[in-house]
């Protein structure tokens, strides 16, 4: 149980009392993102220049669709974690820093959510 809560905290918590959890969370998304980036580059380059229908059919494939959902979740988690470190390095005024951290979390989560919803709507609504 303690392990599970550590894992969840490492990935999703925006509260920076826990530096080690954050560091571990960054390592998790960094390792997990590598095969996705490699796959993405290959698929993007293979399909570069495709038209609307082709791209749509492509995302109608359930495997591609769900892999892309995972990819979006990972990218925006990793981006959020990365920008948190950058914000903490450069903004020393506490209140400003906290505002930036919140804005960052909201924006990154929204972008990820938007991408996931778009993919789900292609698949289930068309």
């Amino acid at each position: 149980m303690r392990k599970l809560s550590f894992f969840i905290n490492a990935l999703f918590n925006g509260d920076h009392q826990k530096g080690t959890d954050h560091w571990v969370g960054q390592r998790i998304t960094s390792v997990a993102i590598v095969p996705f980036v490699a796959l993405f580059l290959i698929f993007f380059l293979m399909n570069y220049g495709s038209g609307y229908e082709e791209v749509k059919n492509y995302f109608l494939n359930p495997i591609i669709n769900s892999l892309t959902i995972l990819f979006f979740v990972l990218i925006f988690l990793h981006l959020k974690q990365g920008l948190e470190v950058v914000i903490e390095d450069y903004i020393s005024k506490k209140l400003t820093r906290e505002i930036f951290l919140k804005a960052n979390a909201v924006l990154c989560n929204c972008m990820g959510l938007l991408g996931v919803l778009a993919l789900l709507s292609i698949y289930f609504i068309g």
Binding site: Y52, V55, K56, F59, T68, F72, I75, F76, L79, M111, L114, G115, A118, L119, S121, I122, I125, G126
Partner: peptide, 16 residues
């Protein structure tokens, strides 16, 4: 890489 990340989301959004 924020920029291409958002561009990919935008691309997927244009499909529906």
């Amino acid at each position: 890489l924020m920029v291409p990340s958002m561009a990919i989301v935008a691309l997927v959004l244009t499909i529906p």
